[in-house]
Amino acid sequence: MTANTGRTLAVREKGKINLGSWLILFLTAALFVFLALTRKNFYTYSNIHSILYEVSFSFFAAVGFTLLIIMGELDLSVGSLFGLGGALMGLFIFNHRLPVEAAIPLAMALAAVIGFAAGLLVTAFRLNSMMVTIGVMMAVKGYNWIQIQKFGGRQIPRAQWNFITVELFGVKWTILAMLATALLFEIFLAGSRHLKQLYYIGDNFSTTILYGLNANLVKVLCFTVSAALSAFGGALMTCRLKHPHVTVGANLEIGVITAAVIGGASIFGGRGSMFRTMLGVFFVFLLQNGMTSYDINSYVQQIILGSILILAIYLDVRINGKRT
């Protein structure tokens, strides 16, 4: 009986391909090669570097998102919290005359409070995370607009944004920070119990509760981290633009979900990788860059990105969906 069960199992295990882990590498490589072959100015150091530079800011909105989607929670507020980072930069630097090294941590702390509150609503009050964070998204976005309009396009002084241009070995430091962050999270997700338990919580929340894990606390912490890191990314992005702008973080959540899901995360929880999410963000930016270089109208780009998101979710449901 044992041998028999064993054999059928091995077959079943093999039959289930883990599409998620290879898909993103393949897609990114294919798109990269395609653009390199068809576009004259694509495959130059400065172009690739500038794409990565853009990616490095948005990536920080995807970090907490990935941690949360692994636990089966969706955080759609990352885009507007990214924007909040910028709005608060303006507030602290223009109105309170704080230096940037104080403004960024403060902006992150304020965003963290919002993330914490959202986390509480999701865990203690058992509200649906998608709905709660859509609410947060709307409210924060409203606040961002009000604030940023008041600044009327005022520029941040050079002394405050100058640090963003620092390069190490000819590479912008934010790119290196992104790579280091992704690597660090990847290592901890794979090997450390603090982050590995996210997969367990995502696979079966009730089981982790039953065996004594404080799954709710973990969720609240991740919502907090997600908000703080999103604000961090937005603050850096604002420094790069030299002034707070309402387009910072606009629709970013859509790019981030797409990135995470084609990076192998599942909206059902239990799957996801920080490194592959990073590749996913790179892929989305590469695609946008490529479409622009082909003179594709930005509204058409939206249609294409939306379709890719739907396709990614469709594949996710087909591959990872709960079989009934």
């Binding site: 997969y199 367990y200 696979d203 079966n204 089981t207 509760i209 039953l210 239990g270």
Partner: peptide, 15 residues
């Protein structure tokens, strides 16, 4: 509740 259905048995046991 009681199992992590999609995690390796080793992860289940160490939970």
């Amino acid at each position: 509740a009681g199992l992590l259905p999609e995690m390796p048995v080793t992860d289940n046991l160490s939970l």
